[in-house]
């Protein structure tokens, strides 16, 4: 029995070690660099400017990166499983477009005054969730869920919201334009610790819920009707997983902005390494997404320091390049 899950077990262990290393890297690298020894000392003393940098600036960013990266990657792997299509990612379904539109409307119509600091994340979240709701309602015909219809409607809604965004961008003031673009580009710089913690707990809850459906997801690899033959309540499973993936994406986008490609690249790469068994792949994707976003954030805030690049730029560039290299070098099987 040692053989069967041995490789996967090692894979998870390696990812855990990489996650710890990436956290240490993110804690130590920045405008002021700390060695590991200094980090230990600072965390022991718990005083001084260094401690403030670590605990108030770098740690919240890491926690947010871990949560957002994990959540987006998890949402990607869930949707790819549900749709049986390796090219689907959270943003294909218009979720980010909806979130961005929500934020744009709030900024253009100056709705910030309602809830202050919480208004932008809230409107992003509401935008994402209403998009999902529309896609969901339109995909149900005769009380049955049509997966392919849903994908097409999602893509169309995504186009409609990005066109509406363009409309708002081209008609609004320069000041609003700047705020919207800045938000869309995404950043892990979130001063509100409550929001950061909420995203963290939500992503962990999402991971736990998804694990209850790991076996049904495996059965869905054979197709919806064959999964049904194995006793899986496919319609319930797909609904719960779709909602989970949407909420995870909505929460991530509303706090960290649009960070692209994580949900597409990470599950894909991990599939090549540890296989498609969802009982392993779900956790591996969560960890992989966390590592990827934490490392990309380190690059985004150090590469042109003291200025900062939007993290979406880094995830797109690095992720895309690594992806192309790996796919072209691997014996990619087309099924």
């Amino acid at each position: 029995m040692r053989g069967k899950y041995f490789k996967q077990g090692i894979g998870i262990l390696v990812l855990l070690i990489l996650l710890i290393l990436s956290i240490l890297l993110a804690l130590s690298v920045g405008e002021i660099n700390f060695s590991i020894k200094e980090l230990v000392e600072i965390s022991r003393n718990k005083t001084g400017i260094e401690y403030t940098i670590i605990s108030n600036i770098r740690f919240p960013r890491i926690l947010l990166g871990l949560s957002v990266g994990g959540a987006l990657s998890l949402a990607g792997v869930i949707l790819q499983g549900v749709y049986r299509n390796p090219l689907v990612e959270p943003y294909t379904l218009g979720i980010s477009g909806g979130a961005a539109l929500g934020v744009a409307i709030t900024i253009v119509f100056n709705l910030n005054i309602v809830l202050g600091l919480y208004m932008l994340p809230l409107s992003g979240f509401l935008g994402a969730i209403s998009t999902v709701f529309i896609v969901y309602i339109l995909s149900i015909s005769k009380n049955r869920f049509n997966i392919n219809k849903m994908l097409l409607i999602g893509v169309m809604i995504s186009f409609i919201s990005s066109s509406s965004m363009m409309f708002l961008l081209s008609t609004t003031t320069a000041e609003n334009l700047h705020s919207i673009v800045f938000w869309i580009m995404g950043s892990l710089d979130e001063p509100n610790m409550l929001l950061v913690k909420s995203v963290f707990y939500a992503s962990i809850a999402g991971l736990c819920i998804t694990y209850l459906f790991a076996n049904p997801l495996n059965a869905l690899r054979l197709g919806e009707s064959k999964a049904k033959h194995l006793g899986v309540n496919t319609s319930f499973t797909i609904r719960v997983l779709f909602i989970t993936a949407s909420v995870l994406t909505g929460i991530s986008v509303s706090v960290a902005g649009v960070i692209g490609f994580v949900g597409l690249i990470i599950p894909h790469l991990l599939r090549l390494v540890i296989g498609s068994d969802y009982r392993i792949l779900l956790l591996a994707s969560f960890l992989g997404g966390s590592i990827f976003v934490i490392v990309c954030d380190v690059i985004s805030r150090t590469i042109i320091a003291p200025n900062e690049l939007p993290i979406g730029v880094i995830t797109g560039m690095i992720g895309g390049l690594v992806f192309i290299v790996v796919i072209s070098k691997s014996k990619f099987k087309n099924h």
Partner: peptide, 25 residues
């Protein structure tokens, strides 16, 4: 069922109706 799943894992899927949501393996 031409999925990229091993024959052993595929045959084991036959036990799915007997597994609870909390039984992973």
């Amino acid at each position: 069922e031409a999925a990229d799943i091993s024959v052993g894992d595929y045959v084991l899927m036959g036990r799915m109706p007997y597994k609870s949501h909390f039984q992973l393996f």
